[in-house]
Amino acid sequence: MTAMLLLLLSQVNAAPLPATDAIAHSLRDETARRAFTVVLFFSRECPVQRSHDARLLELVRDFASKGVGFIAVDAQADASLEKDTEAVRARGYPFPIVVDPEGTWADALGVRFSTTLVVLDVRGRVRYRGGLDDDRVRLSTEATPLARRALERLLAGQEPERVETKALGCVLRRR
């Protein structure tokens, strides 16, 4: 099997969803804009998410300038535009959070746990799916920077060494 997982975006609900930047976003349109787009499955309550915020911002800072797009999605049943807007402000996220209480993006990308990062290429193919690193709540200096390594290889025109890893976040509460 090649190191790429194929995503058939035609099967995804392409209807734009509201987001915290007051713009409606569709997964198809997001991926079409850049060579690579990172979709973060966000949870307001998950302690693993909270503990990784600084590392996430560091990842955005290092790769947004290289043309990688970032967007988050709240795919939980209690996703709320108001609460997610406040989360973006409080956490200093430089990217919007798409409000998707039906979990259409999670279904399309096969995601069950928050903190999962999915890297899609311009054709909508999943090139990496998994954790930011292999830490949980307690961060260690020995953590493996899984998403960073995957992005570095993709930007270098190579396949990630690990296309799929575990995101050690919380289970997404679905409707």
Binding site: A77, D78, R112, C170, V171, L172, R173, R174, R175
Partner: peptide, 8 residues
């Protein structure tokens, strides 16, 4: 079904 996976 995992605990917390469904709101209902």
């Amino acid at each position: 079904l995992l605990a917390g996976e469904s709101a209902h």
